[in-house]
């Protein structure tokens, strides 16, 4: 007769190894758009949406009615900023027009038009280990896995999971995220990965490239996910080891991921779900 204690120990060991095997299998495959994830999004997200809506409403009341003390000063500052922005905008328009003329002359292919779907962030990842958010748009709105998510400040991330009315977005500051990028000034190419403390790492950049602090990093479009030319962040630190062919560059994203509220999901024109919505 086997003692009960021994049976318990053997049981725990078997469960432990079964647990590791299941996790190993899960790590090799992408999760399907149904099952536990789909269930969680479908059941919990409506509550999250309601609660987020209420919180925003209260915040709006606070910001609009009680926090007007510094508005006049801010208004002056913004007016000056606006006139400067208008100047830059005029210059950009001129550049764009000349760019279009030159592209016509060279008979270059027209840039693919993109469609943007606005969505609201309704919740964040429960763990500090992972950086994801849930948005209130899903399959019914034409969103699919892999669609990039942006805001005017820069790139947010990409859709990794989607249910009927909600979707999960993997932020670019998450370790599992990758974006093919280049330095705007020098065109040095590399991969943006998530780093620590809300920063990103620009990896696999050749040592020969001269990069300086403050340089702007944009998406290269070569990963087939993010359109070319979207802003990601600026160089904040350069790490050059004594050996090796690459240098690692720390990037501070333009997006403040702590204050994400509304985002745009980028859907290219040929997508059938989006076509149906048009």
């Amino acid at each position: 007769m086997i003692p009960k204690k021994m049976l318990l120990i053997v049981g725990v060991i078997i469960i432990f190894f079964a647990n590791i095997i299941i996790l190993a299998i899960n790590s090799q495959r992408t999760s399907p758009s149904y099952g536990p994830s789909w269930l969680a999004l479908t059941c919990i997200a409506p509550f999250q949406r309601t609660l987020t809506g209420s919180t925003r409403f209260m915040q709006d009341i606070w910001n609009n009615y009680f926090n007007l003390v510094s508005t006049a000063i801010e208004n002056d500052r913004l007016e000056k900023k606006l006139s400067r922005a208008n100047e830059i905008n005029n210059f950009c328009n001129e550049t764009r027009l000349s760019n279009l003329r030159l592209r016509d002359l060279l008979e270059l292919k027209k840039e693919t038009p993109y469609h943007f779907l606005a969505a609201e962030v309704i919740s964040r990842d429960p763990s500090i280990w992972f950086k994801t958010v849930i948005i209130d748009k899903g399959l019914a709105d034409g969103i699919q896995k892999g669609f990039p998510v942006i805001i005017p400040d820069g790139i947010i991330g990409q859709i990794i999971d989607v249910s009927a009315h909600y979707a999960k977005v993997l932020l670019i500051v998450d370790r599992n995220s990758s974006v093919d990028a280049l330095v705007q000034k020098t065109r040095a190419r590399g991969i943006i990965k998530g780093g620590q403390a809300g920063r990103c790492l620009f990896k696999y950049v050749l040592r020969k490239h001269d990069i300086s602090i403050g340089d702007i990093v944009i998406s290269s479009g070569l990963d087939g996910v993010f359109p070319k030319g979207l802003r990601i962040g600026s160089v904040s630190e350069i790490i050059k080891l004594n050996s090796g062919i690459f240098q690692t560059v720390a990037i501070t994203p333009y997006v403040d991921f702590e204050r994400l509220e509304e985002v745009f999901v980028v859907a290219s024109l040929p997508h059938p779900g989006v076509d149906a919505l048009q």
């Binding site: 994830s37 269930l39 919990i44 990842d125 994801t132 990794i160």
Partner: peptide, 17 residues
């Protein structure tokens, strides 16, 4: 475990474990 796995961006089954 399943709900948290669904809401999180981590490996499927990690919260369950």
């Amino acid at each position: 475990g399943m709900i948290m796995d669904g809401l999180s961006g981590g490996l499927a089954g990690i919260y369950l474990s």
